[in-house]
Simulated assay, not measured.
Amino acid sequence: MFIWIRTLVYWVGLAFLTTFCFLLILLGCIAPHRVRHSFAQAWVKGLLWLLKHVCGLSYKVVGAENIPDTPSIICSKHQSGWETLALQAIFPPQVFVAKKELLWIPFFGWGLALLDTIAIDRSAKTKASQQIVEQGRDRIAKGYWIAVFPEGTRTPPGVAGRYQQGAARMAKAFDVPMVPVALNAGEFWPKNAFRKFPGEITVVIGKPILPQDKSSAAMTREAEEWIEARQLEIGGVGPFAHPDQRKRRPGDSQPA
């Protein structure tokens, strides 16, 4: 019951922060893009604060020293909505690659459009690839990082999706590093779940994969192998861990 109450408080806070911050973004549509991103950063920090202090859900980062000093492509595992927030706090200012339908959502989508999100039409693969390269080149030139979920959608803990080459293709096209990221957020924040469970999410950042002398297929394979190996190391600790990976701590109980 306590988890339900804490989660409800979080959702109320999310509704308030989302409306307030994205109204600021909309009102600041004529302001420099960095100003609009500062409002988004305030939104992210507010939600992460609520998750930690209301829901008891914190996180730790391993390998922060591997983050390059120059704009790069983030190639991250995708298990929940949590990483769409936390990556913005862990890495320098960035934009996401997202399906264009998200831009139609009132307030949230409009804000995404004003935050230079790379919007693609997933129903037309050739066109989507062109959109990623064209828009991505512009974002890198502006000094932004680009966050990509190579599996294309959220995958449950303990499951590996099919890794697409989009992140590697951008890294090669723009001649920038690609940074692999592993995480176990889905064990505490499951897909489409109302409740957020307490615990500590682990994020592991790998050494940059450089595009020189490597094909996009080879870069993608290297990132996938590294990420999935780390998933085995950090998985199995949360209430929604895959049964084959479960390493429950003494005293943990099954979610109600």
Rank of each mutant, 00 (worst) to 15 (best):
G238L: 08
R34C: 06
G63P: 08
T7Y: 08
C75A: 10
N66P: 03
A89R: 11
G161E: 02
M178F: 02
S38I: 02
C21H: 13
P32C: 08
E222Y: 01
V61M: 04
L23I: 14
V203M: 10
L112K: 09
W49N: 04
P68Y: 13
A229M: 04
R230T: 13
M1Q: 12
T202H: 07
A185T: 13
I140V: 14
C55K: 12
A113M: 14
K196C: 03
K99I: 04
I25C: 09
P211D: 01
T220C: 06
P106M: 08
F174D: 01
Q88H: 15
A42Y: 01
G13H: 04
R34K: 15
I73R: 12
F197R: 12
K247V: 05
T19Y: 11
K99H: 08
F240A: 03
A98Q: 11
E101Y: 05
L8M: 12
N184D: 08
K196E: 01
L114R: 14
A31S: 12
A141M: 07
Y163F: 15
S38C: 09
L27R: 11
S58M: 01
F108E: 08
A15D: 00
V203Q: 00
V12C: 12
A173H: 05
S216R: 07
L102A: 06
E225F: 02
G109T: 11
H78S: 05
G251D: 03
V133D: 04
I30H: 10
P68M: 09
K60G: 07
I30S: 13
R248H: 09
Q254Y: 12
I30G: 02
L24D: 01
L112Q: 06
S123Y: 10
G166Q: 04
A217D: 11
Q131M: 13
M178Y: 03
R154P: 01
A89F: 04
P190S: 10
F194E: 06
L102T: 04
V148A: 00
W104F: 11
T126L: 11
V97E: 03
L17H: 08
K100G: 01
C21S: 13
I132M: 15
P243T: 09
F22T: 15
I140C: 02
T18G: 02
E225K: 07
L50W: 05
Y59T: 05
A173T: 08
D69P: 00
